[in-house]
Simulated scan of single mutants.
Amino acid sequence: MNELSDLRQGALAPGHTADIANALVSASGLRIEIDRRRGRGAGINPSGRFEEQRRETFDDGWQSLEELEPFRTEVQIEKPRTAITRNDSPDIGFDRSINPYRGCEHGCIYCFARPTHSYMGLSAGLDFEAKLFAKPDAPRLLERELSRPDYKVRPIAIGTNTDPYQPIEKEWRIMRQLLEVLQKAGHPVLIVTKGSLITRDIDILADMATKGLAKVGISVTTLDRKLARSMEPRAATPSRRLETIKALTEAGIPTAVMMSPVIPALNDHEIERVLEAGHASGAREASYVLLRLPLEVSPLFRDWLLQNYPDRYRHVMNLVRSMRGGKDYDADFTKRMKGAGPYAWQIGRRFEMATKRLGLARRGMSLRDDLFVRPDGGGVQLSLL
């Protein structure tokens, strides 16, 4: 019987603290059997926070759970009204982005975007990585939006809320179509990904890069294959990501190594090694973001941490809270990316020293916005004058 079942029956395993008990309770659902969730990041699938009713899977004694099939990737078509999403967050270096997909098959347990699945009536847990939405109309909508007379050019970020190069992109090819629209229009683009599939589009990105229109950030969270496999089960391996950086930079595409997120007592000891590996692969820019645990991400990460690194659970969470004002997460714009307090300060200084020693820029080149050519038509209603 698992620990959550013991807890529900009022028995707490010896050595467990009240802190761990609270983490188990907050998970809001029984853990899904390993065989059913193999290759997935989350171990639970709690109901979305907007749902009036909460549903849990439990064993009724008739072995009914043994008949359930493994979680398989399902893709539905989403038809948005616009392709470009706007934001006015002061701590983000862009004001617009495109997400060709909703949900992400990479299954990174720490992903801050998981709570967005609740808007679809789905779970931020296993649903986020198994029940995906594709937006095949996004390229057409983008062309239409760029055609508007009042459109003002600013770099568009792609990969901010879902990875555009997750496995389903091989079939849907939405990201490549978006790049074709941006290339034709001479529009600047920033891309963030963990997927090695981006090398497929080097032909487009290299052409845009020669004109100062494209930059890429490759997220390298750890060099430990075992940790990466558990924490980011369907993302490219660390070595593949470094190979991707090399392939992009050799093609003349400005590429940054991004250590995101930095998790205290789990991967923060690798900061210097990750930056050194990225630099050796050709990256000339670097950045980092501290672990963020908003809304449903906190119980999901706690459950994963307790199952995979129970000996570090209390230490990791105590350090997280020390950088978040005693909470799991602080959404304050001045603190959410880097945290606060002595431990956060130490992480920041280590990053600064490593980037300075390696010659990695923390603020890279600006992309050009003077080459934009407004698409002709694109479905925009023409003036009668």
Rank of each mutant, 00 (worst) to 15 (best):
6 D>L: 11
9 Q>S: 04
12 L>F: 00
13 A>G: 02
14 P>T: 02
16 H>F: 00
16 H>A: 12
17 T>L: 03
24 L>Q: 10
27 A>W: 00
30 L>M: 15
31 R>H: 06
31 R>D: 10
36 R>M: 07
38 R>H: 03
40 R>V: 01
46 P>E: 07
47 S>V: 09
58 F>H: 10
59 D>N: 15
61 G>S: 02
62 W>S: 07
62 W>C: 08
68 L>P: 12
70 P>N: 15
71 F>L: 06
72 R>E: 12
76 Q>V: 14
88 D>I: 09
89 S>R: 07
89 S>G: 10
90 P>I: 01
97 S>I: 05
99 N>I: 00
103 G>T: 04
104 C>P: 06
106 H>D: 03
109 I>P: 09
111 C>A: 03
119 Y>P: 02
121 G>Y: 02
124 A>M: 06
126 L>N: 03
129 E>C: 09
135 K>S: 01
138 A>N: 14
138 A>F: 07
139 P>C: 12
140 R>I: 11
142 L>Y: 15
144 R>W: 05
156 I>Y: 04
160 T>W: 13
161 N>M: 13
164 P>E: 08
167 P>W: 12
172 W>S: 01
176 R>Q: 14
177 Q>E: 15
177 Q>V: 11
179 L>A: 13
182 L>H: 06
182 L>E: 07
184 K>H: 12
185 A>W: 04
189 V>D: 13
190 L>D: 05
190 L>G: 13
192 V>M: 13
195 G>Y: 01
197 L>G: 13
201 D>I: 06
212 G>N: 06
216 V>E: 02
222 T>V: 00
223 L>R: 03
226 K>D: 14
228 A>W: 01
231 M>Q: 06
233 P>I: 14
234 R>V: 02
234 R>M: 01
236 A>W: 10
236 A>D: 10
238 P>L: 02
238 P>G: 04
245 I>G: 00
246 K>L: 01
246 K>Y: 12
249 T>G: 01
250 E>H: 09
251 A>T: 05
251 A>L: 04
251 A>P: 00
257 V>E: 07
258 M>D: 00
265 A>Q: 06
265 A>M: 06
265 A>D: 10
266 L>S: 05
269 H>W: 02
272 E>W: 06
275 L>H: 11
278 G>Y: 05
281 S>Q: 09
281 S>H: 13
284 R>L: 14
286 A>W: 10
287 S>V: 03
291 L>S: 13
294 P>A: 13
295 L>Y: 12
297 V>M: 11
297 V>P: 07
300 L>D: 00
315 H>L: 09
325 G>S: 05
326 G>W: 12
326 G>L: 02
334 T>E: 11
335 K>G: 03
335 K>Q: 11
338 K>N: 09
340 A>I: 15
342 P>D: 00
345 W>L: 03
348 G>H: 10
348 G>N: 05
349 R>E: 09
350 R>V: 09
353 M>Q: 08
353 M>Y: 14
354 A>F: 04
357 R>N: 12
363 R>D: 08
364 G>L: 11
364 G>P: 05
367 L>E: 03
369 D>G: 08
373 V>I: 11
373 V>A: 10
375 P>N: 05
